[in-house]
Design a protein around this nucleic acid. Sequence first.
DNA 1: ACCCAGGGTCATA
DNA 2: TATGACCATGGG
Length: 227
Amino acid sequence: MNDLSITQVYEQLHAAYGPQSWWPADSPFEVMVGAILTQNTAWTNVEKAFASLRPVTPIAPEPLAALAVERLAAAIKPAGYFNVKARRLQAFCRWFVDAGGFERLIHEPTADLRAALLSVHGVGPETADDMLLYAFGRPVFVVDAYTRRLFGRLQKLAGGEDYEHLRRGFEAVLPPEVELFKEYHALIVVHGKQVCRPQPRCAGCVLRQSCPTAPFSLAANTGLKGR
DNA sequence: ACCCAGGGTCATA
DNA sequence: TATGACCATGGG
């Protein structure tokens, strides 16, 4: 079995799936709304929620903050956890308006901006980092459930590492390039949805030469060396 | 009838 | 600080 570096995993995923050009949204603000809606939720349901919400209100901070929370909840129903997420969206929108919107926030150092995002009710580490990377263009590595599963299967994780430990680990190894970080997280998610599933395990995985939990039966030895 | 999905908060020990 | 309960829809 080969032992791929973090950089080599990126190269293989990129070679297999190509550029992803994430995040799927019409504007930086919609990136942030989507980041909250997609918490522990399939993206297909988030798309339905956007389609349901769009006729009700403009997807913009002031209108969303002003909308009655019950109406907002009803409008985002397909995303699941709609009562929770309606409150979180409004808490976020109020903070965003109070903070002066992109005009002001864009000038904040990344560490300060991250701390401010984390202070908002309903914005945890992954949601904050989604926003920092895909809405603010900061070189922050996003860690999610797919990241943990993939690198866990590649035997690079023990399993108990907390979020900050993992984020710093990736950021210490990778060059701090925004486009690289955007692509890497996108590729991990795409690979996770299509291939690196809980079960059945790793069907047709491009990393099968290096992934101990990939099935042996299929193309166990094609002569590749997994660089 | 299950399991799973691009998390986070809160109460309890 | 470390688990566990809770939130809820929709697709496979």
